[in-house]
Design a protein around this nucleic acid. Sequence first.
DNA 1: CCGTATCCTTCGCGATACTG
DNA 2: CAGTATCGCGAAGGATACGG
Lengths: 115, 115
Amino acid sequence: MLATCPSRTSLARIANKWTAMIVIALSERRMRFGELRTRVAGISGKVLTDTLRDLERDGIVTRIAFAEMPPRVEYELTALGRTLSEPLGALGLWAEQYFDQVQEARDAFDARPTT
Amino acid sequence: MLATCPSRTSLARIANKWTAMIVIALSERRMRFGELRTRVAGISGKVLTDTLRDLERDGIVTRIAFAEMPPRVEYELTALGRTLSEPLGALGLWAEQYFDQVQEARDAFDARPTT
DNA sequence: CCGTATCCTTCGCGATACTG
DNA sequence: CAGTATCGCGAAGGATACGG
């Protein structure tokens, strides 16, 4: 977090909604591309591909391609990825758990006079 | 995370690098605007203002303005914000702790043939 | 010092069409 | 089915200048 700390670059990568959602989905179990696309609803194919490639590059997921027709590709968390799934999972839980309070705060804020 | 779950919107807000860095900074102690700008290095004034306003709207930080000259404004986590600082703090720790492994994985990935 | 307003650039991301 | 390529929009974010 500190100004010049290089870990900021890795924080920027993981503090990202798509990364969070993908890692949370994969923390449950290994999954195929199409399955991921369904679970992480709203993501486009392009962005899913790009994000998975970045995560593979960073050693967080493993890409397993089967030489079949039609093609099948599965993605799985690495050991490193599994360590990451814990804080990200906690973040996902927070979002579920406190969403109502956030929503209330938003409504209250928006309802107050524009003065 | 699930397809239609509305908590996705709050996850998108908190799974964000600026949010993470600001909340982590404020988890240490209440802080002034200028101090935050220094601690969260690289952020522009505009983005810091915008993000803080969103966080205030979501009930995560409180804005305390002093009627002085020159002006002084402090930001502080709310009770809700403090609950959030735990998973985000964990994420920050992960980034520090595993940054080296991420870096190695990146280098290895980039070094491999473009086949 | 702490904003707000404006402008402009960059990039995330979705849509579509096409390949193995 | 999985992935690539291209295009384009809109949001994120930086720089600057100004106001209370």
